[in-house]
Design a protein around this nucleic acid. Sequence first.
DNA 1: ATACCGATTAACT
DNA 2: GTTAATCGGTATA
Length: 212
Amino acid sequence: MMATMTHEKGLTLVRTFYQQEDVLLIARSLLGKVIVTEIDGELTSGYILETEAYAGIKDRASHAFGGRRTARTETMYGRGGTSYVYLCYGIHCLFNVVTNVEGTPHAVLVRALRPLHGIEVMRKRRAPNRFTTHGPGTLSQALGIRMEHNATDLVNGNIRIEDHGVVVPSKAVIISPRIGVDYAGADSLLPYRFRIASSHASLLPLTGKSVE
DNA sequence: ATACCGATTAACT
DNA sequence: GTTAATCGGTATA
């Protein structure tokens, strides 16, 4: 409750949203929603432009394929509405949303963002003149998300996702295979990647009441 | 203990 | 189109 007192507009997504069974539906639904972080005393937020679904134990591209359960993947087995942050290529902290109920390790990788609040903070977190929030690594960097933010509660924690009432029409959504999962064989071709076409992304409202 | 690999990025040609 | 950077995760022994 306390953590959400500063937000004046937009509804923080509730537990039941994250606990829906269909991870593809959740990945699609997250397009146009707003990620908000309150990290290091800075508030930053942005519209979700791109996601990928990872469908648990039967998905060869998922860390949890085959029911693999290790210190790293343990977070994925938690309840929906928890963050799963892991280190990729030794450099990048990738932010995922755990979905489904406890024991079912589904997740959605958030891959691109359109900045809304705290743009100067995001710019500062990145190298000068290299500001971008397209790509899962740069997105986390801009939002201040680090490994210590793994297993954060997205319903009551310092990372949350809000619905600002933006409607993303089907014709604005491009569905394609996921990136960087060639090792997954046939599953690498599954249409689990969702993104808002750039022509529509520019229509997302940047005006409105400040959440500062 | 050792070896291989990766849900990426940036800087190249 | 190519490739180096970089280090924890994971499997193997």
